[in-house]
């Protein structure tokens, strides 16, 4: 079975890390977290998984 546990863990870390690295060129951490949420959801869907955003 070639399936990794929590399929996008590494990708989520990379998305957050790449976003936080943009702090050097002026993007704020808060903006990064908001953008990362969307990107992680896209990554889930690209893997054929379902994901929905919880409403607070």
């Amino acid at each position: 079975m070639d399936w990794s546990w929590w399929p996008v863990t590494t990708q989520s870390f990379n998305i957050l890390s790449d976003g936080f690295r943009r702090k050097a060129s002026g993007t704020s951490f808060v903006d990064t977290v908001v953008a990362a949420e969307q990107q992680i959801m896209t990554a889930f869907r690209n893997k054929g998984l379902t994901i929905r955003k919880e409403q607070a």
Partner: peptide, 23 residues
């Protein structure tokens, strides 16, 4: 260098996509 992200060059991008994202 904080400015170098995980997809800084095309080869690094292909490497990350293959071995970090399993795509």
């Amino acid at each position: 260098a904080p400015a170098v992200n995980s997809q800084y060059t095309p080869n690094l991008s292909a490497y990350t996509t293959a071995f970090a994202y399993n795509d």
